[in-house]
């Protein structure tokens, strides 16, 4: 007899593929389901699913609930909520996972209300308690100064998960799995908001939240011009440039690029912290980076207590030769 779907993820598409966060949900969800001896399901809503159902199975799903309709083209909360509420209620999972993205953070709280359950948003770790079998959801609170572990008393146990908190698996195209098409129904009278358009703004490099490498400059940069150096540095990895609040307040950088408690939260593989002190306001936005490299004039700067590698000195003398060296490596064969 087939095991029950206990872990259900709500996926997002990026173009005609699963979004990276969705792959991570499947990887992490797979781990949770394995320790429960259960199956993993995923819901995919789209205008046209293409091969994403098969992709989801390759990444760890056992069942794919695939709803396709023209009205699912763009994310619209009341549309998605109606469709999802029905699917989730029908599947009846123990655990429901979403990614902490612009869509996930919009959708999850309202879905939780409709399912009359709680929600642990922006989790950085999920684990099954071996004694109770319940989901322990760990999330940063107080701007990352503390970690809270939550256990949900209602069902499903629902969490949104921060990007890069879970690990996606290597895709296995031979994995068995089942795609279950769902016919979405829509009650137009319940739609209260409408997507009008998406405006893509010209940003150099990739969006901050998705960047694998982020170079961030603080108050010590001294002016807007200095950020060109960071652009050059980040470019080597196709990364993005951020700034601290004092730098944004001084008008050197647009506030859309602010990293920190009241700005963006990023968790890249490499975070290059240049001429910034590492205030707790700032670290709330980048403390989860896999590797932090600090360049600062002040050897006592707080950032060095977070950094894996550090250079003490004036960035004006360190960045140019560093960038030069990286460029050389890119151009010529390694010596």
């Amino acid at each position: 007899m087939a095991k029950k779907i206990k872990v259900l993820a709500i996926g997002e598409l990026a173009g005609n593929q699963l979004s990276p966060g969705t792959r991570e949900l499947l990887g992490g969800g797979r781990d949770l389901a394995d320790s429960l001896g259960a199956r993993v399901g995923i819901v995919l809503l789209s205008e046209s699913a293409g091969k994403t159902g098969a992709e989801a199975i390759a990444y760890g799903a056992d069942e794919v609930y695939q709803a396709e309709a023209a009205f699912l083209k763009n994310y619209q909360p009341e549309v998605y909520l109606q469709v999802l509420e029905k699917i989730v209620k029908k599947v009846g999972p123990e655990i429901l996972l979403l990614a902490q993205t612009a869509t996930g953070r919009d959708l999850a709280p309202r879905l939780a209300c409709r399912l009359k359950t709680a929600l642990a948003p922006d989790c950085v770790a999920l684990a099954i308690d071996p004694d109770s079998g319940l989901l322990r959801m760990t999330r940063p609170v107080y701007g990352g100064r503390a970690l809270a572990v939550l256990v949900c008393k209602t069902r499903p146990q629902m969490a949104t998960v921060r990007f890069r908190a879970l690990k996606s698996r290597e895709p296995d195209p031979s994995r068995p799995g089942e795609i279950k098409p769902v016919t979405p129904e829509l009650d137009q009278s319940k739609i209260k908001s409408k997507f009008i358009e998406k405006v893509v703004e010209e940003v150099k490099g990739v969006p901050l939240e998705n960047a694998r490498v982020v170079a961030c400059g603080g108050r010590g940069m001294g002016g807007a011009e200095a950020y060109a150096l960071l652009e050059e540095l980040a470019q080597f990895w196709g990364g993005a440039v951020g700034a601290t609040r004092p730098a944004c307040d001084s008008g050197w950088v647009s506030s859309a690029r602010q990293i920190g408690l009241t700005g963006k939260i990023v968790s890249p593989n490499l975070y290059l912290a240049v001429a910034l002190s590492g205030s707790s306001q700032h670290m709330a936005g980048c403390g989860n980076s896999k590797m932090i490299v600090a360049i600062n004039k002040d050897p006592e700067a707080n950032i060095f207590s977070f950094a894996n590698y550090g250079v003490v000195g004036d960035y004006r003398r360190i960045l140019p030769p560093l960038i030069e060296r990286l460029k050389q490596v890119r151009k010529g064969p390694k010596d």
Binding site: S277, K297, D298, A301
Partner: peptide, 14 residues
């Protein structure tokens, strides 16, 4: 405390 610490850091670094 924030002002005092950042002043001390800055003066040290300078």
């Amino acid at each position: 405390i924030k002002f005092a610490e950042s002043n001390i850091d800055d003066w040290n670094a300078l």
